[in-house]
Design a protein around this nucleic acid. Structure first.
Lengths: 134, 134
DNA sequence: GCAAATATGAGAATGATTTTCATGTGCAGA
DNA sequence: TCTGCACATGAAAATCATTCTCATATTTGC
């Protein structure tokens, strides 16, 4: 365990109590928490952590590529641990639930489309919004 | 001409001076303006229009399906007239330019993926971010 | 253990968007 | 055409997420 903290250390970043708690909070989340949810969860580990520190830490983690930040429509941005597997999201409009999926053909198509337009694909965002069938 | 105003009337909405000016401003834009750009352009037609009215009107137009709102990463949301042709966007990271594109295979794949997951696709968002090749 | 570099908490500041509220206006019907 | 009233407006205050400021506290290489 503690993969994330290890990766964090390997990235050569300074490890503090606040960051350790935030990393733990993130690692033990399987949903896609927002900054305030992470703040709550981190406070359960160390109650002195400030909201600003969560935002600062998430920005740092995003910059070094350890987490991915998603702006799903309105409201707060959601975070997730960066995984090696490339996936996109489907949002269940009935419940707000976020479902991850992966599709090889889709990934290939994105790259191909960008290339056809004369671009080198650097990033992308795909979200599907749907309601359960029947 | 005046397609948009006609569609607006057909939607059974109350037509006011402010809304007429905003609709004209939107119709004569071929970029993807944000609310403040639309406010500037609408003020050129009727200088008394308030920023709040632009925001209110854009929300109304979005609700009735006459415009599409896009949140590209940070900052202000961008708007465009709703078109019949389904297209996505590629953002040139070097210049910020927004390029529209359309791909049948991609559209079909989105629907197929949602269905495979047990969902009826209601909406989706795809943005590609790239840099010009060489 | 020390110093320099960097992180932190608390609250103020920012920026986009929405709301409030008192007043003004479009339009269905007489 | 006139009128009432439901709805729209301008201006400024309020919200919400996020970032910044700043004085103080921690981390880590030496």
């Amino acid at each position: 365990m503690s993969d994330l903290i290890q990766k964090y250390i390997d990235a050569g970043l300074r490890l503090t109590d606040a960051r350790r708690a935030i990393l733990q909070a993130l690692q033990s989340s399987d949903d896609h928490p927002d900054a305030l949810m992470l703040h709550e969860r981190a406070k359960a580990i160390d109650p002195t952590i400030a909201q600003a520190t969560v935002y600062r830490t998430m920005r740092l983690l995003e910059e070094v590529g350890l987490v991915e930040k998603h702006d799903f429509g309105k409201g707060r941005a959601r975070y997730e641990e960066a995984e090696k597997d490339q996936h996109d999201h489907l949002i269940n409009l009935a419940t707000g639930e976020i479902i991850e999926f992966q599709d090889e053909a889709l990934e290939a198509l994105k790259v191909a489309i960008a290339r056809k337009l004369g671009f080198d694909l650097r990033d992308h965002r795909l979200e599907l919004y749907g309601v359960p069938i029947k």
